[in-house]
């Protein structure tokens, strides 16, 4: 089992331990945070010097972000043309396969359509649930919620994903040289139906991504709130603030970092890694973005 560390900033290099064999560098969620060429070079040299494998991670992008990525791909290709690249955007995939054919491509977790909303954890327990609420007079009222009984036939839908189970997708990926997919360690359990020895899985720990947006809720979060319009200037507040979101109906605390929500699951959701296609664990020392 290969151990990798995912960093999005240079200062996170301090978290690297001797048992890591690979560095993931980049980001998945925001084109404003795409690395500069100089920082990319710095991490590449660090990896080379410390005999670590290197994976470059790219986000979903507009045409503007695609231009930035293209210039980084040029640099990367000159440095190590077989470098592993994680794509989270089909446009980035199209760019990489047509213009940088020697890259080793891995399909990012945003394109693996796992169901990640934490309320699924309760739903799949298929239990009735009781709780106490206040009535109009301030007294306690017991309220019993009966969850809809989900048929077991839905388990591989809610614990699996299209990309990790559909043979027609596997054939497509293999024919385009994609032999690795990146997946979240979702708390409801994980079903994998991948062709043996043809497609491998990297499993991300402990932050499970839930949702993401261009309408960044963190951009301008410290600014004057008088203007209700949603587009606020990005002051990279995501590099300073994290928001913890809790709600009685949500079984996990949600962490909002920048434009993306996550929850934490430290427990491995797959019973036997030895028999599974998971051959790499990717650790996040901190919330990315």
């Amino acid at each position: 089992m290969e151990k990798a560390i995912f960093i999005s900033r240079i200062k996170q290099l301090k978290f690297i331990k001797p048992d890591y064999a690979r560095i993931y560098y980049g980001n998945e969620f925001c084109e404003r945070l795409i690395s500069s060429p100089s920082l990319l070079k710095e991490v590449l040299f660090y990896a080379q010097k410390n005999n670590l494998n290197f994976t470059f991670v790219t986000p979903y992008v507009t045409d503007l972000g695609l231009k930035k990525i293209n210039s980084l791909f040029e640099l990367l290709y000159r440095f190590q043309n077989s470098c592993e690249v994680v794509f989270n955007d089909w446009g980035v995939f199209d760019l990489a396969r047509s213009e940088y054919p020697a890259f080793t491509l891995a399909l990012g977790r945003l394109l693996v359509k796992q169901k990640r909303g934490p309320r699924l954890i309760e739903l799949l327990k298929r239990k009735i649930k009781a709780r106490f609420i206040k009535d109009k007079n301030g007294g306690k009222v017991k309220q019993i919620l009966i969850q809809k009984k989900l048929p077991l036939s839905l388990d591989d839908y809610y614990k699996g994903a299209n990309i990790s189970s559909s043979t027609i997708i596997h054939d497509f990926l293999i024919s385009h040289g994609v032999k690795r997919i990146e997946m979240d360690n979702v708390a409801q359990g994980l079903y994998l139906g991948l062709p043996q020895n043809k497609i491998s899985v990297s499993l991300y720990l402990p932050y499970v991504y839930i949702t993401t947006t261009f309408f960044c809720p963190t951009a301008g979060c410290a600014a004057n709130k008088n203007n209700p319009l949603k587009i606020k200037k990005c002051g990279r507040e995501c590099q300073r603030y994290v928001f913890k979101l809790t709600h009685k109906s949500m079984p996990k605390t949600i962490y909002l970092k920048g434009n993306t929500q996550f929850y934490i699951n430290k427990k491995l959701s797959i019973s036997s890694l030895a028999k599974s296609p998971v051959n790499r664990i990717v650790y996040f020392p901190e919330l990315v973005v």
Binding site: V61, D89, W90, G91, D94
Partner: peptide
Amino acid sequence: TVFNSRSVDF
């Protein structure tokens, strides 16, 4: 999730 021209190519 199309946000750029190359996704359209895809």
